[in-house]
Design a protein around this nucleic acid. Structure first.
Lengths: 201, 201
DNA sequence: TTCTCCATGTAAGTAGTTACATGATTGG
DNA sequence: CCAATCATGTAACTACTTACATGGAGAA
């Protein structure tokens, strides 16, 4: 039991400037603007398609952060209507990129925080009868299979586009996502096979 | 763009009883009590070691939920001091298992919600110079390698114990965790190799 | 005696989601 | 003309974390 506390979240060797304190969502906004998004709406879309796998964001986070970033002088926001439809177009100022870099290289604690209800339920699945438990395994496998489809069909084109534009890390994180879901599918398949053999004995 | 909204979180074919509405943490508490934990402290420990990989919980969620479950008649709480040290020991009532099962087989939406700051930063790593970006990849690989160690050394014995006690799903979820982290390590290694080759060209 | 573990709990704050409100544009 | 998409935004809520407070027990 001695080294159980491997991941106490203490650490944080963070002798950084004390002013910072932008929420993570603000950096996501910054990063997506740099990656080519222009409006709040486009940011939302970009996150949904490209980062969906490891980060989510809602309009209620985006719009207040755009305002905040503008007030902090990190972005400039111009009205840029399409016909009668209002739109704000945001561009990075000179201070934006250094700030983004500072965040990227800041040593925040990064505990791997999967929060997955499906896996959680599976952990307790012994409380169900075999058939019901097995259907949770099926659900999990199907979900990952669907994700793989989405990643290949939707995120891949985006990542390739980014790659052509000189951005190579979107592709890298996409490969992570694909590998993870493929791994989950494999584990489920192995389990299902073992189960059906035990069934047939 | 037509089928972009693959995962709008609507669904919820949840014609279930309207009374439910226990928070997820309450079911975690219930499930861990069933798996052998007795005190709030033991529940915390069990989650940290066994479910750490896909779910976290804090004392501030555990203790109020123990009270709530007791009031709902799902558990019984007895004072059970060790010498002078106070302790409450909780046991499931007859209604507990059906309620746990109901939750397990309830069709909640289960979007795969990885929320991982390290991967998020990696996505934006093109904003850094090569060396710094690469160190983020290193960080990610090391973190997964450490996790693998923890999973093997800490969670594995627990999962084996559970297996001997007739619970097979803790082992299954552990295998998922191991596979996922192994997949991440592999992707990082491939990337690092490609990078060092490009370096040496 | 001092450190780590065992053990229970609360207050305050942060982060994030859901639900709502509004309305224009485009494509079929 | 209807549905989907583009577009911005807020209020209320829920979930969760952090920090704190307290103290006994066992081991070195």
């Amino acid at each position: 039991m001695t080294d159980l506390e491997v991941d106490n979240l203490s650490a944080e060797p963070n002798g950084q400037s004390p002013k910072d304190k932008l929420p993570t969502a603000a950096y996501v906004v910054l990063g997506m603007l740099r990656a080519g998004a222009r409006s709040g709406y486009e940011i939302k879309r970009a996150v949904d398609v490209s980062a969906r796998f490891f980060w989510a964001i809602s309009p209620a986070q985006i719009y207040p952060n755009l305002k905040r970033l503008q007030q902090a002088g990190l972005i400039e926001s111009r009205s840029d209507p399409h016909g009668q439809r209002a739109r704000l177009t945001h561009t990075l100022t000179a201070q934006a990129l250094p700030e983004l870099r500072r965040w990227l290289s800041r040593a925040d604690p990064t505990p791997f925080e999967v929060r997955d209800l499906a896996t959680l339920k599976l952990f307790f699945a012994d409380a169900l009868d075999q058939e019901q438990a097995m259907s949770l395994v099926l659900d999990l496998r199907r979900r990952s299979e669907e994700r793989l489809q989405v990643l290949h069909r939707q995120s891949m084109p985006l990542a390739k586009g980014a790659q052509n534009a000189g951005l190579s890390y979107p592709m890298f994180t996409l490969e992570l996502g694909i590998a993870i879901h493929q791994a989950m599918v494999d584990v489920c398949n192995t389990f299902e096979q073992k189960h059906s053999m035990a069934e047939a004995r």
